[in-house]
Design a protein around this nucleic acid. Sequence first.
DNA 1: GCGATCAGTT
DNA 2: CACAACTGATCGC
Length: 717
Amino acid sequence: MSSFGGQMVEYPTISIDRFDRENLRARAYFLSHCHKDHMKGLRAPALKRRLECSLKVYLYCSPVTKELLLTNPKYRFWEKRTISIEVETPTQIPLIDEASGEKEEIVVTLLPAGHCPGSVMFLFQGNNGTVLYTGDFRLAKGEAARMELLHSGGRVKDIQSVYLDTTFCDPRFYQIPSREECLNGILELVRGWITRSPYHVVWLNCKAAYGYEYLFTNLSEQFGAQVHVDKLDMFRNMPDILHHLTTDRSTQIHACRHPKAEEYFQWNKLPCGITSKNRIPLHTISIKPSTIWFGERTRKTHVIVRTGESSYRACFSFHSSYSEIKDFLSYIRPMNAYANVIPVGTTMDKVTEILKPLCRSSQSTEPKYKPLGKLKRARTAHLDSEEEDDDLFDDPPPVPLRHKVPNQETLHPEVFSMTAISQNHEVFSMTAVSQNHEVFSMTAVSQNQPENLRQSTGCFKEESMPTSLLANFVDCQESNSESEEESGIPASLQGGMDPVALHQQKSDVDVPQWEVFFKRNDEITDDGLENFPSSAEAGASQSPKLFSDSDGESTHISSQNSSQSTHISEQGSQGWDSQADTILLPSQERNCNDTTSLNKGGYRPRIKGNIPASQLEQNVLCPKDTYSDSRSRAQDVNIVPGVGEPTTISSGKNKPEEKWLLNPGTKADSQSSSDFEIPSTPDAELPKQEHLQYLYEKLATGESVIVKKKKTSLLDI
DNA sequence: GCGATCAGTT
DNA sequence: CACAACTGATCGC
């Protein structure tokens, strides 16, 4: 839970995610996402009064957050005082002291945070330097390096302070399976159950909070069954989410809630009250999304744990793991880092001790030259074969990068609301992508109507799920020694091995394959060196590329187990892994290649994508603003009027849902980040640390390094 | 009666 | 396991 007070030392006249006490005097408010613990005081009478007499005070947030906020009647009074800002669009905001008339300007840039729909980080640039407030975030390793607007002159910006989500900033939480691994695990578990009969249903025991939407949409898309929820009106303007949800209880996938849901479930009753369909009793399992974490040296993790006869826990995390946080911070390298959250069981001092070494201020000898902080460019398929020989550290001429329209335009206050709408609209689907990390892919939704999917999957339903599945699960549960895991994993759950299912999915040629968003194993990060050995291990072992689609599965399952990870974990990890005694699914990406639902849509953020190791430091495409400071470039900054009709900025065609749905941004691996998979061939050896050191030294001196890499899919554009 | 806070629950 | 939110008790305005 955030304990951030709302104010940053550099810019104390603005308040973020806190709206009570001293924040009542702020000149501007910012909301990073729509979770209650970040909205303290936002509907309090005191702030309401303030709003009535301070007419120049506004709340700034992403378009999706604005939509979610204002669909809640309790916050409706913010309607005329909320200004949405497009992600990745530097925007100038006036900070006016209404008593004295004193005015200050600040430029804010919203960056995708991957925490829940609409969640963003705020990058502020003004007279007191550049600061980054992360809000809550989940970003995979290497994500920061792909954020164009964190960079300037081809390098990461000079950031004074980072206000950081430190929820899992403790070595206990070293590793959390990636979003894709978790999603795949859940998909397979659900597939194994609901394909048995129309009377087999699953209940997703989710909390009342935003952040599960990508799970719902992927399940719906994969199985052609909408997810039953209690409420969906908040998504009324987000059709690509809305279409995957239903209030019709007759579906096989439920995420409805009830105060006595657990009790109901004991009696085979769903939270919505139903127990049967066509007078035939339902067979129900519950899946509870939970954070499951692992120690530092754990290569393999397990994303599904059986907790009872019909109950499962599925790994799911809204927050970055310890190693993800360290990767992020060590890339940004701010002068200071402040913890927004004190993880349970630890202290602010301990967190500070972890953060300090990753900040520049801790190292007086820190060289000015920061060779490891360069923006990673997306690579296009046609460049694949030519780029490897380029000098990695060359700063090529600043070839203009195609920017999002808002970034290119000078938006004058008087025309802003009009131009912004029409121009943003065009690119909305692209910018939106990174705004809401949670949804990997969704654009294909409309191409794959549930009916079609149902039809296409129906043919293998019964055969794909052996009737012994349940028994297999039971076996797994009963085994309490790690070596039994291999036999405990149902074949049908081992990576979508079912031939019929596999065939079915592969035949779906119209759907972009997973590589479009996820295949990045031929790139490496140039940062987070200290994490390297274990991260490389983890990444390599989990790489779908390092093992063929169908083999190696059982080996991994048996080769890594909970107790192993326990005894090799670093301090604080003892016992964390051993609890996973009913592990069902290893987290390695068994079947990335056939998880089409992850990458339907075909959109990808421009600056993300495959970057081969050899191109790591290349700047083939320079961002337009590479050589200039955004603070001084009015033409790249939107001006927020702060008066007039600000709310129109996000109205019209700027439908929040589009952004958020298209967002493959978070598709990136988390722990298993392909960034660390140096050798991308199955039989290649992991690089030794010494070798890496050598490699990086060469890179730093500008020598060319040739690294063989795999051919990239043509889809990977 | 409403809201803030805390403890307990899921 | 934690998270985020809900519930209920208590207290103050």
